[in-house]
Structure formats: C-alpha cells, structure tokens
Design a binder for these strands. Structure first.
Lengths: 237, 237
DNA sequence: CGTGTGCTTGACAAGTTTCAATAGACGTGG
DNA sequence: CCACGTCTATTGAAACTTGTCAAGCACACG
C-alpha cells in the first residue's frame, strides 16, 4: 500500500491485487499466478504537479500506467515553441513507445498530482512471453493513443478558438467522474489548441458570461455539456 | 505480375517475391516458406486518384501495404468539415486498425494513382501465430503512425500559415526519391494544415515569388530544401 | 505584508477568412 | 481541331479573428 504522504518510488507489494484501474490498464486480463512472478519489479511512482514523469530523448526503460491524475505529453519546435500532443488520464499508458525499444518521444509532465505504476519494459516482455494476450492489450493501447491523436487533430486543432476550447472542455468533462472537472492553466490549454493564453482566457471568459461554464475554482469548472455539444453539433448521447 | 492497364483486384502469384517495398513493409523479415503458405490470400489492389481504398466505419477486414502512390486519411467534423490527419506513402500500412478488430477510422482516399497489397486480417493473424516477429513489425507500424500523428500536431498545425506550408513541403520533398515531388491540391493542403484554399494558394504563390519553390506542373514542384529548412529552423542535415 | 505567478482586459497590429470575380487547365463533344 | 463547360487555382477587398504588447488584478506563498 502507499505510504501516506510519501513521494517518489515505492515497492508495490499487495497493491496490484486491489488496483482500482487494473480492469482498464495493461494487466487487465492477466493470470494472477503468472503476474505474481513478476510484479515485484513494478514500482509505484507518485509525482507532484509540474514534475516530469520522463523526458524526451531518454532511453525508454519503463512504461507507466496512470492510476490517478492527468499527464501532458509535450513536444517542441526548433524555436522552443511547445505543443501538447495528448493528455493522459486514469488507465492510460505513458511511455508506450518504450515497448518497442525507442527513446521517449515526449516530455511527460504532471498537470495534477499523479500516481502511476512504473513497469520495466523487460517485465512487460517477460509477461508477454507467458501471456500472449498482453500483446493484444498493448495493441489496444497503441490504438487508443492513435485515435486520441487523430481526434486532437480533427477536433482540437480545427476551427475557431471558441469551438476548440468547447471541444476540449467536453473532453475534460467527459473524462471525469466528478461533476466538476479539472481545468488546465490557460497557457497549457493554449499549447493544446495552438492558441495564445490571452485568446484562451478571453474565450473562457466569454463562455462564463454566456453561462455555458462555471468556475468552481480557477482550475475546476462545471459545464453545461448539453449546450456545449449543441454548439459544436456533437452527438448529445 | 500486374496485368498492365488493369484495375481493381488481382491475384498475386509471384509478385510478393520481387516486391520492391517488402523490405520496409509488413513482411520485412518473414520466412519465405511460411509466407508462401498464406500469400495466396493476398490481392493486389490498384485504385486511381480520388478513389476510396476504404471508408470510415466499414468493418476492417484487410490492411493495405502501400506499394506506390500517396493516400490521404480523412476524418470529418459533425458539420461536414474535413481534416486530413495523415498521408501514407510507399511502405506505410493503411487500415492498421483492422488488426485489432476495429472498424476503419478514416476515409482512405488516393491522392495519386495508388498500388497496394491487400492483406486479410485473418492472414495477418495466421502469419503472426507462426512468426511472432510479425508482432514486432506491427508494433513498429503503430509507432510510425503515432509519431507521424504527433508530428502533424506539432509541426503542421502550429504557427503561421507560411511555416505550416513550408513544413509540409519539406515533408513531401523528403519523402520522394525524385527531384520533383507531388504537390497536393490547394484544398487538400488546406485540410492538412487547417487553412482555407485561398490562404494556401496565396502562401504558395508567395513562396514561388520568393524563389523557394518552383512548379514543374500544377501538381509537381521542386523546392530549395536548404532555404526552406533555414526558415523554419529545421535541422539542415 | 510584499512578491511572484498566473489570469484578465484593453487597444492596436497582423494574419486569416470570406465573398466575389477572374484566369487557367482539362476533357468532351460538336 | 476548336468551342464549351467544369473544376481548380489565383487575386482583390473587406470583415473578422487572433496575436501582440502593455497594464492591472487576484490569489498563494514566504
């Protein structure tokens, strides 16, 4: 179990068995028996807001299952401009490129405090050798990443600022179980949508004036999802 | 061999053995013996400019290795706006999501005349069962797709129109062996860069006036790669 | 109780879209 | 072989959106 208040890496012992995200994560249908042979290599890693989970260019030695919190994946242009290419949430896999022997392709930075399981790539390989369905789970994770990426291009990088912000808010709201959802800093939002912080700030202020969202705190908001979806003509499930 | 002038699906016979893209494609390190057991299921599919290779939402029954030509992957917003999320070229795999049992996630449309090998997903599975390294190749293809996608977000959807167009031109030029490279229609370029056809047209006209590119035909161009890279501060290998 | 950091707002400049008109390329049929 | 229609590319002018620069505000932290 986690030692309350602790930071950094902790040996997992029984934690995996009761893991709240196992059903959606990497080991979703793994034999407990097989799993027990290897899970001693797995570490729990907790980092605070702003910390790096890993850094672009580093040798990819571990993948991370996100247990709690939100992580941004950042890439940079030669001039230093940064672009957030994806957000990872509970159940997502960070550093998946490590499984092909590649170096990390992004800076992975915590937007909130983040709780992960760090799994050495070697462990993944050994597990996969005994349990081929892990391959299938991994493929699914690749597909998730790619389809998120496509969606960021289609929905978050297309159209006027108002629509982009709204589509991001919908995503944020729908990926939270609470009524209020985490609202990233204006600069981060800008780096997700290819807008400046000023434009984002103005757009969010407009949405508040129009009664479409309501700030609970500067970084938590509630949204009228139905109205937001109507504006961008999203399916109103 | 291909029957000259023919269209549509053709049974492959000896074609795979002499395939010019096998070294970069799906069967790059497959045992010829194993391969021969299955390759009768593989069809050569040729389509002309503007034709669909597959359509979004269709059940994904085959993956396609691109042997020749360029394919665009298109997604749509609810209002009908389209966005091109990737271009596929020689050696790339189209419809890779079919390997996870998913439906196709895009419209795949030929920008030029296109020559592919269509491989049933079932064949891929059978081959993978006998030759596990195929899993690894597939993972690499997923990674390629994802890293292209990230790059489209970072480099093609960020910054002013001039930079986006230049970065696209660099990509097009570097993914061609000829001196002149295929230049897509202005509307397609717009849908790749989230710009209007008019803006793209003006930007390309500017680049021509500045002597940075030269049109061989309306859809073929030569570029001064060194200068273009200097402008966007790309590595000048 | 200052100081820093991030958010907001304003005014103006720059960039992009929109609407409209023209020019060019291409294929078809007279 | 040329006229015609169609489709794409180009260009102009005006409207609009977004970026830039600058200042003020609010909240958290030391």
């Amino acid at each position: 179990m986690t030692i309350p208040g602790s930071k950094g890496e902790i040996l997992t012992n029984e934690i995996c068995k009761v893991c709240t995200v196992r059903s959606v994560a990497l080991f979703q249908d793994l034999d407990l028996e097989v799993f027990n042979k290897f899970h001693s290599a797995i570490r729990e890693v907790e980092i605070s807001k702003g910390d790096h989970l890993y850094t672009i260019g580093d040798p990819g030695e571990r993948v991370f299952t996100i247990r709690q919190g939100i992580v941004k994946l950042v890439q940079y242009l030669p001039d230093g401009t940064q672009r957030i290419v994806r957000l990872l949430k509970q159940g997502d896999l960070a550093g998946i490129e490590a499984t092909t022997g590649s170096t990390y392709q992004h800076d992975a930075i915590a937007l909130t405090s983040v709780d992960t399981c760090a799994i050495p790539v070697k462990t993944v390989e050994m597990l996969a050798a005994e349990q081929p369905q892990l391959h299938r789970t991994l493929l699914t994770k690749w597909q998730d990443a790619l389809s998120t990426s496509d969606s960021w291009l289609t929905r978050l990088s297309t159209g006027p600022s108002r629509y982009r912000v709204i589509r991001l808010l919908i995503w944020l709201a729908e990926n939270t179980s609470e009524k209020a959802f985490y609202l990233p800093g204006r600069e981060d939002i800008g780096n997700m949508l290819a807008l400046t912080t000023e434009t984002v700030s103005r757009t969010i202020a407009d949405l508040r004036r129009d009664g479409l969202i309501e700030l609970v705190r500067s970084d938590f908001a509630r949204a009228d999802l139905r109205k937001l979806k109507a504006i961008v003509k999203d399916a109103t499930d």
